[in-house]
């Protein structure tokens, strides 16, 4: 009986102590917690870097990236050279209703055209609106954070 009373009082002591501590709840729409810089919120597209190589669309596990492009002839750089052919992006859509936020597309992109942004407030009442086109994806570029420094002992990689 003594042990039971002690157990009850011990528990009550913990709840009382917690009551005196400040609350950890964040009242979301009024106050906002900043996500970590690495948080995978939304994918941003830097359109001028994209070469329509389709690597991201092919490596996506649930095929939620839709890319269309065409080739254009540009005049040669030097006098008498052959005209260059340039790939131009017509359509770059990511369907965020399907996206698993795995980040494989960002990782495979060989020309650094895709970036993660920790922004997360883009929910829509209509599911079709979650298909972000390339203009909308380009707007997210402003929110992409700078790469943060690494912990002690990490190997510093040279710029590619």
């Amino acid at each position: 009986m003594k042990r039971q009373v002690k157990g009850m009082l011990g528990g009550l002591g913990i709840t009382f102590r917690t009551m005196m501590q400040p609350s950890v709840t964040v009242q979301y729409p009024h106050e906002r917690e900043e996500p970590t810089p690495r948080a995978r919120g939304v994918i941003a597209l830097k359109e001028e870097n994209c070469t329509v190589c389709m690597l991201c669309a092919r490596s996506c596990p649930d095929w939620c990236i839709y890319i269309e492009g065409h080739k254009e002839q540009r005049p040669a750089r030097r006098e008498g050279g052959r005209p260059r052919s340039v790939s131009l992006l017509d359509r770059f859509d990511i369907d965020y209703a399907l996206c698993m936020y795995c980040g494989i597309c960002v990782e495979v992109c060989p020309f650094d055209a895709l970036f993660w942004s920790p922004e997360f407030e883009y929910s829509e009442p209509n599911i079709a609106e979650l298909l972000h086109d390339k203009d909308r994806l380009g707007e997210w570029m402003e929110t992409v954070p700078e790469p943060e420094p690494l912990e002690l002992g990490a190997e510093i990689k040279g710029k590619k």
């Binding site: 970590t36 690495r38 698993m100 936020y101 980040g103 420094p149 690494l150 912990e151 990490a154």
Partner: peptide, 17 residues
């Protein structure tokens, strides 16, 4: 859903702090 392991290591190093 971290998706952090790669064959041969991990994706990224620890952040500062």
């Amino acid at each position: 859903h971290p998706n952090f392991n790669r064959i041969g290591g991990v994706k990224d190093d620890l952040p500062w702090g």
